[in-house]
Amino acid sequence: MEKKTNRWGWAFLIVASAMIMIFSFYPMFSALIMSFKTGSSANMKWATPWYNNYLRMFKDKTFIMALKNTFLYLIIQVPVMLVLAILLAQLLNNPNLKCRGLFRTCIFLPCAISLVSYSLIFRTLFYDTGMINTILMKLGIIHENIKWLGQTGTARAVIITALIWRWTGYNMVFYLAGLQNLDYQVYEAAQIDGANGWKTFWHITVPQLRPVIIMTFIMSINGTLQLYDESVNLTNGGPAGTTMTMSHHIYNTAFQGKANFGYAAALSFVVFILVAILAAINLKVGDTRD
């Protein structure tokens, strides 16, 4: 009986593994090979030297700009978003709060909107004569339209704001789920011991939520490094390429104008390596097992 079960187990496993091999690992391997090649995609030749595409990156000002932009988004947006998410989760986890469901839904709702749609909506809001400028003018806060998307600083700020708006609710849901698993007795004990809300939060909630926090961190880092829709649809990389992300640059290299698949594949591997390194650091830092 056990033998038979095992045989079936392997049979199912082989099918699944074969599919992963064919549709996931094989393309990844091909992309690695491709990243050492150059030329039009119908007729690719080995680059000379074979790692030339990787050397090329250091001379690619657009890529370096995109790398800086992406890390800027990462450094500012991810901590702000996660702190907001955890605070909101804490607030909405309060059993005495009325209309909890409504608030939770409202905060989660942005996640139901497609990335392209919300990027386009943000772009419309921040037009030179768009809604934001009109409101600010009417309120008398500004006297001349701000070129939100025409200046580097404001354009980056708009992207970061949009990202926070879109993703905070998503992360909040994970924290809420995490919070609901915490034993309420621990909090009661803390209260009896005289811990205030802030202390309870830092010494009881955060340590117990650690696995969830690490997971959201890794997901957010991964997501931010692959940021694409906002850069393309909200600012189209502008002004002067100062809001372009790495994925946007990869897309442009591969699919806009003259295709350069070899170089685009090399760039993708750099993003892949960066994600891996950051995730490894994150796991290492977050791991408290001795």
Partner: peptide
């Protein structure tokens, strides 16, 4: 000369 930041801003605005 108005330099719009996107195609839709150019057309619509």
């Amino acid at each position: 000369i108005l330099l719009a930041n996107s195609w839709s801003e150019y057309c619509d605005q």
